[in-house]
Amino acid sequence: MSALLRVQDLKKYFPVGKDLLGRPTQVVQAVDGVSFSVEKGRTLGIVGESGCGKSTTARLLMHLIEPDEGRISIRGKEFGRIGGRHPVAELRRQMQMVFQDSYASLNPRLTIEDSIAFGPQIHGVSEREARQQARDLLDKVGLNPNIFIRRYPHELSGGQRQRVNIARALAIKPEIVILDEAVSALDKSVQAQVLNLLADLKKEFGLTYLFISHDLNVVQYISDDVMVMYLGQVVESGPVEQLYQNPSHPYTRALLSSVPSQTPHQRKQHKVLEGDPPNPIAPPSGCRFHPRCELARPICAARQPDNVRVSGAHQAACFALPDSSGYSEYIQLQEVCA
């Protein structure tokens, strides 16, 4: 099956600080060469710690931030603001987004109905039709339209507001929905309701999800494929079972073993990583993880590792993987010299 969404070599560097002439003195390499593809009907989970570029990637996909480089295509059609590419408005009709902060993403002066019906009208649906659709959608996300349609965002609870945001994202019938920490701010009992809702909607409308989260348990539950990011780059990706059972990048291993235990008899005894993720303004040379990595060797600081196939579609970018170039040869060389 060919990919529904394909992203190639996405890049965004943010300038930080200015010198006397207004030239940027430093750049944050927020997203640095991210490529992936998603097949129709699947859910791609994107995980990583704060500052790893997962949210920036989402915003770049939607063109809420203009990418510096890279190609974004849906069904082989390339979108963007550069000449020759299809317009961004069309991209946004096919891809919508739900944000973490349910309150900040709704206009406080619009009723729920107006918020949901706004998008379709921009895209040429008549007002009457858009309003009818808003009622149907509210019903679909589990809110009684007769009760909620005239309400304002502040009259709703966090879970209800997030349902409204989901309804609004679906209002223009997108194929792809980006969920950027969409359930992270919700309490666990409400989070479970919204996760169930997302699964139902996916089935009903044949949606494809990009699920961005720092919660590794939730990502494991909802995703088909997972992509792990570290300092603006993808370090490992693959089908969820393979990646969680056989994490191959040292960072993925550390990340997965940092999750607090769910059973009292398996408390963590040792920390897995020292220190904080480094500053993306001056990322480490070579493999960006090498200063925190227990397997690091000189080659890790000197060169950037390529993606290596672990098995099937499971890939990781690490020199320490068996069939990777450089690392094992280097180790052998060291042994010979010693």
Binding site: V190, A192, L195, Q220, Y244
Partner: peptide, 15 residues
């Protein structure tokens, strides 16, 4: 309702 490893992904969460 708390998602934990080893959950059956094809089943709805008991919310």
């Amino acid at each position: 309702a708390t998602v934990h490893p080893g959950m059956n992904r094809s089943e709805a969460l008991p919310a």
